[in-house]
């Protein structure tokens, strides 16, 4: 599946958008990724959400903490490369036992056309788990909303950092030949 096709395959994005609303999330921080296009558009078009574009992903970890202190629930949407940028920042939710809910679209997996993406793609789970993040990986589009709902419950119910990884096979593979 091409990246363009992925952007029209919005089933999981609609479900995550609906679940985010139900979970009381009102702040969405992101460094965008093609696989997040639909979800970010749905949130931008919905008055219940404020979408904040970041310069680097760890800012979203800081924002999640500040928002939580002020009584607001947030979601950080990022590409897998950005997981590495978040490492030291994740000490903040770990130390304070605060929620940090993340949705990560994966690169550097099966079918990846850019070999430079492999090192970070392979390291995402290890990096997150080393920082105490609960990692759940959706290998099919049906799994995305199921795991997102579980992650939101765990994040906001128990003050955990949780990341739902959306496998590259779900979002499609970027075609560098095009």
């Amino acid at each position: 599946m091409s990246q363009a096709a992925a952007q029209t395959d919005d089933g999981w994005s609609r479900q995550v958008h609906a679940l985010a609303g139900e979970a009381g999330i009102s702040l969405v921080a992101t460094v965008p990724d093609a696989g997040l296009t639909q979800l970010l558009r749905l949130c931008s078009d919905d008055d219940r959400f404020r979408v904040v574009t970041l310069s680097t992903e760890e800012e979203g970890v800081g924002m999640a903490y500040g928002a939580w202190l002020g009584g607001t629930r947030s979601l950080l949407c990022l590409q897998s490369s950005g997981a590495g940028n978040c490492i030291n920042a994740l000490a903040l939710p770990a130390f304070t036992r605060s929620p940090c809910l993340m949705l990560v679209t994966m690169r550097g997996q099966e079918g990846e056309g850019n070999p430079a993406q492999f090192p970070m793609g392979r390291a995402v789970r290890a990096v997150f788990e080393a920082m105490g993040v609960v990692v759940m990986e959706a290998m099919t589009k049906e799994e995305v909303p199921v795991l997102f709902g579980q992650a939101a419950d765990l994040a906001f119910g128990e003050g955990k950092a949780c990341a739902v990884l959306v496998a590259q096979q779900v979002i499609g593979v970027k075609d560098f030949a095009k």
Binding site: L27, E59, V61, Y65, G66, A67, L69, L92, F95
Partner: peptide, 21 residues
């Protein structure tokens, strides 16, 4: 809100708080 770690994120924490309050 005293931070004890996460150097570089103080302004981002402030932004999240400013949006929430």
């Amino acid at each position: 809100a005293y931070l004890w770690n996460a150097m570089g994120l103080t302004a981002s924490v402030g932004l999240g708080l400013a949006i929430a309050q």
